[in-house]
């Protein structure tokens, strides 16, 4: 927000904070623009209370956390929680399951909405387009508990989809089909909603570019490949980087609702493990350590993806 001050100095834009070396300049700026600071206050408070304050909780990862003592009274045990996790029988499997589920989800789930948006862009009938859009983003608004119920029912031994596929065994309880169902239903859930942002980007493409391409003899495919796609490339990359930053956070609730002992070998992921350890077994320190480890990996991936993208395409988050 830009505030008219009427004074001689132009107001300080946040981007120029880097130039400030003098504390008196800040004071001056505060005096002049205190309204802006005030408006920002709720946001700052929000992040301080809900994003930064709870971070103190990671201390538990280095403690043998006791309910009685809390943060201050629990004994410190260094990295024991971490080494226990690394030595755990299921360590390798948890990491692999988490990674491979997310990876498939990224591989198939990421391009789907882009493709969908491109196809929708080619549609001429506005009414038809609206109907299709509404239908496809409906699943996004259904509660995950209901979604899981539907999935369990449709993929049970006499469920609708199981019968369509010509099978008679319970597919959701089967190791070989769990991942496909998980990723497939994820696409179904998020296709419509995730394509909205691409459609918004598409509506911003300059119409003259298409006319020029048509003059050059480009057909529909040519236009899509050489005009549309490059125009939304920066949106795609930003979203991809964000997605990679979340690579190891597969949708925890959905797995928790769908998995069963019979599919643990492909469905048990870091977050579900953390849930069982922390909330069900009250092993808070250990559970926090595992969660912290997960976040650290995510952060590392985000930075790597951002760096790579910066080098290759000059588009980056930071």
């Amino acid at each position: 927000m830009y505030v008219e001050t009427g004074g001689e100095l132009p107001p300080l834009h946040p981007c120029r904070w880097g130039n400030i070396v003098n504390i008196t300049t800040i004071k001056k700026d505060f005096k002049r623009n205190w309204v802006v600071y005030l408006i920002a206050l709720p946001v700052v408070v929000f992040f301080a209370v809900f994003a930064y304050a709870p971070m103190v909780g990671v201390l538990m990862a280095f403690q043998n956390y006791q309910i009685k003592g809390g943060f201050l009274g629990s004994p410190w045990i260094g990295l024991k929680n971490f080494t226990d996790f690394f030595k755990s029988y299921y360590f390798g499997r948890l990491i692999w399951n988490t990674f491979i589920l997310s990876f498939y989800d990224l591989l198939f789930g990421f391009p789907a909405p882009i493709l969908f948006a491109l196809l929708m862009n080619e549609l001429r009938s506005v009414r038809y387009k609206r109907v299709v859009q509404t239908i496809t983003y409906m699943p996004y608004f259904i509660s995950i508990v209901v979604i899981a119920g539907i999935i369990k029912d449709f993929f049970s031994s006499n469920g609708a989809i199981t019968l369509l596929l010509g099978s008679t065994s319970n597919l959701i309880g089967n190791v070989s089909s769990f991942r496909s169902i998980f990723v497939g239903t994820n696409i179904w859930q998020f296709l419509g909603f995730n394509s909205v942002i691409y459609m918004a980007a598409l509506s911003g493409v300059d119409q003259e570019l298409y006319d020029a391409a048509a003059l050059d003899g480009a057909g529909r495919l040519g236009k899509a490949l050489h005009v549309t796609l490059p125009s939304i490339m920066s949106t795609i990359i930003i979203l991809l980087i964000l997605r990679i930053g979340n690579l190891l956070t597969v949708s925890f609730e959905k797995i928790l609702l769908l998995y069963a002992p019979s599919t643990y070998s492909v469905s048990d992921v870091i977050t579900t493990f953390t849930y069982r350890k922390g909330l069900l077994e009250s092993n808070y320190g250990y559970s926090t350590a595992v969660g912290l480890f997960n976040s650290a990996l995510n952060f590392l991936m985000l930075v790597t993806a951002n760096f790579t993208s910066k080098k290759l395409t000059e588009t980056s988050l930071f």
């Binding site: 755990s88 309880g173 089967n174 002992p261 019979s262 643990y264 048990d268 350890k277 077994e281």
Partner: peptide
Amino acid sequence: QIYTDIQTYTREMVVKFITGQ
């Protein structure tokens, strides 16, 4: 500490034995 993993393993294996996986 020991039994949690054993329990997970047993639950998983028994179901797999029964379903033939």
